[in-house]
Structures are given as structure tokens and as C-alpha cells.
Simulated assay, not measured.
Amino acid sequence: MSIENGTPLALLSPKQVREQIRSGQWKANTSGVASGYVQGNIVILPKAWADDFLKFCQMNPKACPIVGMSDEPGDFLLPSVGDDVDIRTDVPSYKVFHDGVFVEEVHDITSIWQDDLVTFVLGCSFSFEEPLIADGLEVRNITEGVNVPMYRTNIACRSAGPFSGTTVVSMRPMVPKDAIRAIQICTRFPSVHGAPLHFGDPAAIGVHDIAAPDFGDAVTIKEGEVPVFWACGVTPQVALEQAKPPFCITHSPGCMLVTDMRNSQLAIL
């Protein structure tokens, strides 16, 4: 993949990617972009709801690992995750919810920003795709140039205040020996979902049609491969549907905030 000057997306710096997003030139998913850097799922909530959501994340760290958040309510710059990161403009696509109901998808939230909003940046599975590929494992959604498939499951989250629900997972197909290797690799990255939750029979976790993901795009599963499932940062969107805050904003699935943090900073050596 490449953008206007022909530079491969993997070789762009995070700031270059954010500039493309901020200018409206890049509105697609960010898988494979800015290799080596942490990408983040986004949840933005009014301050009155932020403490319970923080507790929900702390109780469900596999699905909701916090890698950054705003210093004060109303802050739209996030210096803890990158230089000149403006959360209102630097995500390719946002989802806006009122009372837990999705109302619109937008590419800029400047006009709807509020002074009481708190931003959470959660670790993303795109960060562990890099070490998988470096080890020689294929990541099918990158090979096929599509968004990773994501599914609702029957795996219950621990509740915190009004926040509850079930875990969303992302899926990458692999032969069993590669799935075992993926477990070994991803165990080193607990801040970006860590090791897979499950591999093998999708029905065992409540996924009944592997060809029809709830979010993202379907990918090819070849003969001899099994689906491998990781906890996914779309999980908070399910919790938000249950909690029904009056107003909240998330990233669109697959459309992440590209930060200046290195993936290596999150690894356990």
C-alpha cells in the first residue's frame, strides 16, 4: 500500500501518517501503517462516565489495555502518546453515539468537541502484527489488503458500574504450529492484547459464521488452517451500547490513532 508520493505506508513516520489523516487524504484502516509504532483504539466520554470506564478497562485488561489518556477533561492534545497529537482530527474515522446508539461516522470531531470529554487510548492488535510478520508468520488481513475480521463472542467481560458486555475478538487464520508460535510471541505484548484467547472451533466462543464478521472484512481461511482469536479493542463499543452514556465517540473499527510510542516500549523482554 502507498499514498500520494509512492512511499510504502509501513515506512511513513507516525507524524506523516497523522498529517495525511488530518488533511483528509487518508480515511481508510491503518493496518500495516508506520511499522514499529503503537496504534491505539479510542474511547471518548464525558467526565461523569470516565471513572467507571477506567475501572472497566482495569478489570478487562486483555480487551481494554490502556496505553494513554488525556491529562485533564477537555484536553484534545495528547502529548503522552505523540508530538502534536490532536484527538479531534488525527483518527481516520470516528463513530459517534448518543445514549448508546450509533448515530454517525465522521472524519473530524472538532465541531462536536466538548469541554468535559476524557480520551482513552487503548492498545491495538495492529502492534503485534509486526513481530508476527518479523518471525515469518503470515498476517492474512495485511496480505489481502483488508481490515482485520472482528467478531462478537459469548466471553463475558467483568462489569464496572454501568459498563458490561461481551468480548469482541479479532481473527487471523494460521496453521496450528504457527498459532502456537503466535501465542509465544504475543505473550510478550500484554499492553496490546497479549496472547490469543482461543484458536480452533469458532462456535466454542459464540462465533457461528466465520465468513460473516461483525466488524471489518472476511479473509481467506485455507485448508489446514484454524482461526486464531485475540481480544479486540472494539470490545468497549459493546460495553458502550450496554451502558448508554448520553454522548461518546470511538474510532471506527480498524481506523486507529497512530502514536509516536514504539512497539518495543510495550514488550516484555
Rank of each mutant, 00 (worst) to 15 (best):
Q114S: 09
G206K: 01
D209T: 12
A134F: 13
A156E: 13
Q184S: 12
A134L: 11
A160E: 06
L122Q: 04
V148H: 00
G194I: 03
R140S: 06
T166A: 11
F97G: 02
V81L: 07
M174V: 08
A182N: 01
Y94I: 07
P173N: 01
V148N: 03
E105Y: 10
P149M: 04
D90M: 05
A179Q: 07
M174T: 05
I183T: 13
G82F: 06
S191E: 12
L137A: 04
I180R: 12
V169N: 00
H193W: 00
V106Y: 12
R152L: 10
V81A: 06
E144A: 06
S93T: 14
V103M: 12
Y94F: 08
P196L: 08
C186D: 04
V169L: 07
P196V: 08
D201F: 09
Y94V: 06
I155Y: 08
F128C: 02
V81E: 00
I133E: 13
G123C: 00
A195Q: 10
T187Y: 08
A195H: 09
H198P: 02
E72K: 15
L132P: 01
P92E: 04
P173H: 09
D178G: 08
M150R: 04
A179T: 11
I155P: 00
M150L: 08
F199H: 04
V146A: 00
S164A: 09
E72A: 13
D90H: 10
D135R: 11
T166I: 10
I112H: 07
A203C: 06
G161Y: 08
A204K: 15
P162Y: 10
V146T: 05
A204W: 09
V103K: 13
F128I: 13
L77S: 07
F76M: 14
S159R: 11
I205A: 04
G206D: 02
P202C: 06
V85H: 03
D201N: 15
V91Q: 02
